[in-house]
C-alpha cells in the first residue's frame, strides 16, 4: 500500500509540474506569435499557429489525468477542491491564448503605428500577470510562504495592463487615422481581449491567496 500511494503521489506531482510547464509554454508561444503579428510577419504567424493548438490539447489531457488520479486514488482529500479549481482556471488562460491568436488570424485587426507600442506593451504586461500567477501556483505547491509575493506582482501587472488598455482606447477613439467607427470598435475589442489575461490572472490569484491560507498550518 505504501509503495502504491508513493508511486501515485510521485506521478501526480510530476503531472502537476508538467501541466504548469505546459501552461507556461502556452504563454511563451502566445508572446512569440503576437509579436510576429505586431511586427507584420503575418506568414510566420500563420505558419506556426498550430503550435498553440497542440499545447492547448496537451494541457487538457494532463488536466484530465490529474483529475482522474486525484479522485481515483483519493489523493489530497482536503485540498483537492482548491487544487482542481485552480488548475481548471489556469486552463482557461491557455484556452484564451488559443482563442485570441485565432481571432487575430481570422479577423486580422489593423494595428496602426500610433498604437502599436501600446498594444505590444499591453500584451507584455498582461502576460506578465499570467506568468506570475503560474509562479504563485508553483509556490502554493512547494513554497507556501512565497505565494503572497507572486500575488502582489499579479496585482501590479494587472493594474498596469488596465492603464495601458485605457490609454489605447482613448488614443483609438480620439484618433483621426480611422475613417470607419467600426475599426475603432474592433481595436477596442482586441485591447479588451489582451487585457483579459491579467483580469483572469487576478481572479486566480485571489483564489490562490485563500487556498494558501487554508494550506498554511
Amino acid at each position: 500500500m505504501k509503495k502504491f500511494v508513493f508511486n501515485k503521489s510521485q506521478e501526480l506531482q510530476k503531472d502537476i509540474n508538467e501541466y504548469l510547464d505546459t501552461v507556461e509554454e502556452g504563454f511563451l508561444l502566445f508572446k512569440r506569435d503576437i509579436n510576429r503579428y505586431f511586427n507584420g510577419h503575418f506568414d510566420l504567424f500563420e505558419d506556426d499557429l498550430d503550435d498553440i493548438l497542440d499545447v492547448e490539447n496537451k494541457a487538457d489531457e494532463l488536466l484530465k489525468d490529474i483529475k482522474y488520479k486525484l479522485y481515483t486514488y483519493m489523493l489530497l482529500p482536503e485540498a483537492r477542491g482548491d487544487v482542481l479549481s485552480l488548475l481548471e482556471n489556469m486552463d482557461n488562460e491557455v484556452d484564451l491564448c488559443k482563442k485570441v491568436l485565432m481571432q487575430f488570424s481570422i479577423e486580422k485587426p489593423v494595428i496602426k503605428d500610433f498604437v502599436k507600442n501600446e498594444f505590444k506593451d499591453l500584451a507584455k504586461q498582461s502576460l506578465n500577470s499570467a506568468e506570475e500567477v503560474v509562479k504563485g501556483m508553483r509556490a502554493y505547491f512547494e513554497e507556501i510562504s512565497m505565494v503572497s509575493d507572486y500575488v502582489n506582482k499579479v496585482h501590479f501587472y494587472e493594474h498596469e495592463a488596465d492603464k495601458i488598455e485605457e490609454r489605447i482606447k482613448r488614443k483609438v477613439f480620439n484618433s483621426k487615422e480611422f475613417e470607419e467607427f467600426s475599426k475603432k470598435v474592433h481595436l477596442r475589442h482586441f485591447a479588451e481581449r489582451l487585457a483579459y489575461f491579467s483580469d483572469l490572472a487576478e481572479e486566480i490569484s485571489e483564489q490562490l491567496s485563500v487556498a494558501a491560507i487554508k494550506r498554511t498550518v
Partner: peptide, 12 residues
C-alpha cells in the same frame, strides 16, 4: 511546512 520546500503532494 511553512519554511521548507515540501511539495503539497508529499505533505499529503
Amino acid at each position: 511546512i511553512n519554511n521548507f520546500k515540501i511539495h503539497l503532494i508529499k505533505v499529503d
